[in-house]
Amino acid sequence: MNYTTITKFDRGPLARLLTGAGLAAALLTGCHPDQRMSASSDRQKQLYAYCMQCHQIDGGGHKLAAAPNIGGLDSAYVENQLNKWRDGVRGAHPDDAEGLRMRPMLRTLAGTDDIKVVAAYVASMSTVYSPPSLYGDQEKGGKVYQASCASCHGTEGLGNQAMMSPRLAGRNDWYLVTQLHKFRSGVRGADPRDAQGAMMRPMALGLADEQTIRDVAVYLSQLKPKEI
């Protein structure tokens, strides 16, 4: 191969100008509004990258990191809870060790609509079920649930967006037990700004004993609702 042919690729200043213009045009088309629409899911994934460290890529959670499964929660509920964390309404109690782990993560969601974007992404995932991690009587738990909890959380455990009550079917049993204890002791839901917590606290206090709490939690963790 003759070395002089290589230099022939450079055909002078005009050719260089045209090449540069072509590259610039290619870059600018990348910023076309249509392109940005598809980039919104990239934004979701980008924001979720920090959540993923504990809550996992499928939203299935990680018990050792005290991170429950979150996939399939209603986006309005996730948004509401994230706002509470940001404002110090949830996860700011000195005894809430797990909530305090979550608290600084809101510092990564500082944009105006970051919380909305990531909540929509969490809601778009499906609920990841895990086998029971506790001893509980599902039959007894089901009875207690239908009597005490179903009026707000639904007979199928799907939650009620109007009351901001979350979907409970398929949530980790250990997480439900922890949260019920926190509601009972006032570690969660006792902040005067927490309207939903104020509703939930007396309900959690109404559960008779530790075994009842576990029965309900195990029942809910295995509850598979008939999706509409």
Partner: peptide, 9 residues
Amino acid sequence: SVPGGQSIY
């Protein structure tokens, strides 16, 4: 009586 925290922003 208020155990709540402050906003982190």
